[in-house]
Design a protein around this nucleic acid. Structure first.
Length: 112
DNA sequence: CACCTGACCGTGT
DNA sequence: TACACGGCCAGGT
């Protein structure tokens, strides 16, 4: 794992996010051991278009805001995808963010 | 090697 | 509520 490219490591984490849950760019960065590389995580998502298996819609910013929705086709596909998974979204804001938040640091700490 | 860009984050006004 | 700044990191040119 440690040999994998940064992007690939990001995708690896994102692919493990359960449906109906979301996480943040910062949380992923922190899990990868680089807490300040949240921007790079977002950049990785931008490049995730060639990775259909990566549920990029489950990655939002620290406030639960769909900052990356404009990178999806259409105007609100990201929101639709999330809502189809049982996540309530209003005004680009994930509702009950604390409840649906999935922290890789807590959920994957026993795996490594 | 030297920029430039960006789906971020924290703080301040 | 909104906007501005600075810092961080990775990839591309």
């Amino acid at each position: 794992m440690a040999n994998a490219d940064f992007f690939k490591r990001v995708y690896d984490v994102v692919e493990q996010i359960p449906a109906g849950r979301v996480t943040s760019y910062g949380a992923i960065a922190k899990y990868l051991g680089t807490p300040r590389s949240s921007r790079a995580v977002g950049y990785a998502m931008n490049a995730a278009h060639s990775r259909p298996e990566v549920p990029a819609q489950r990655v939002v910013n620290r406030n639960g805001l769909l900052t990356g929705k404009h990178h999806f086709p259409g105007t609100n596909l990201m929101q639709q995808l999330l809502e189809s998974e049982g996540i309530m979204v209003d005004k680009d804001q994930v509702q009950d963010f604390d409840e649906v938040f999935w922290d890789p640091l807590l959920e994957l700490e026993a795996l490594e």
